[in-house]
Simulated scan of single mutants.
Amino acid sequence: MTAGATAEEKLAELGLTLPEVVPPLAAYVPAVRSGDHVYTSGQLPIVDGKLVTAGKVGAEVDVEDAYELARVCALNALAAVASAAGGLSNIVRIVKVVGFVASAPGFTGQPQVVNGASDLLAAVLGDAGRHARSAVGVAVLPLDAPVEVEVVAEVR
């Protein structure tokens, strides 16, 4: 990727565009700004209003596909952060990522799945995309999604 490129340029180099913010599925908002931070709600792998894939990782969904789904979640989270911060250029850094992985019994590869989100954020934001993180296995997620990602970002 081009050194010194903007986040928008890096997205384009990756063949990606910032999607529209995914509308809430229940009684919440996609992101809230409080001072110099934006907190996103959990973002699912939704593209064009539809869940990309359903199921448990380690059963119906393999690790490689789940990694890609976590990338989609991170892209949706970036859209939510940008909407609350006035654009991608106002993101100072990603502070924390929490990834939830709907896991089949005995599945322990949650960190590899959530790497999809972490790798995308670093690719788009460079060092500002590196963050603290938790990768948590759960029994089930909304809509039977395999992955859900939430982000805390410092913004201008």
Rank of each mutant, 00 (worst) to 15 (best):
Q110K: 13
G58W: 00
V72R: 02
L120G: 01
T108M: 04
G35I: 09
N90S: 13
T53G: 11
R130H: 12
S134Y: 15
V29Y: 03
K96L: 14
A5I: 07
A123R: 09
G129M: 05
L25H: 04
A31Q: 01
L16R: 12
E9W: 10
K10D: 02
S41I: 00
A70S: 12
L88D: 07
D127A: 11
G58D: 09
E150Y: 03
P146V: 03
G87M: 12
T6A: 13
G126E: 05
G58A: 08
L141H: 06
Y67R: 12
G99T: 10
A26P: 00
A85T: 07
D48V: 00
G137W: 05
E150P: 00
G116T: 04
S83T: 02
V32D: 03
V61L: 09
T40D: 10
A123F: 06
V63W: 01
F107T: 02
A5M: 09
E8S: 14
V22N: 07
A3L: 15
V147H: 08
S89P: 00
L51D: 02
P24E: 05
A122I: 11
V140I: 13
A59N: 10
R33K: 15
L120M: 09
H37R: 15
Y39L: 13
K50Q: 13
D36Q: 11
T2H: 14
G86W: 10
V124M: 12
V149L: 07
L143R: 04
T108W: 08
V29E: 14
A145T: 03
L121H: 00
A59V: 06
V52W: 04
N76M: 14
V124R: 04
L44H: 02
D144S: 15
L51A: 02
D119Q: 06
H37Q: 12
L141Y: 07
P111Q: 05
L141K: 08
M1F: 07
A59Q: 13
Q110E: 14
G55W: 01
V114L: 01
G109K: 10
V52I: 12
R130K: 15
G15P: 01
S134R: 12
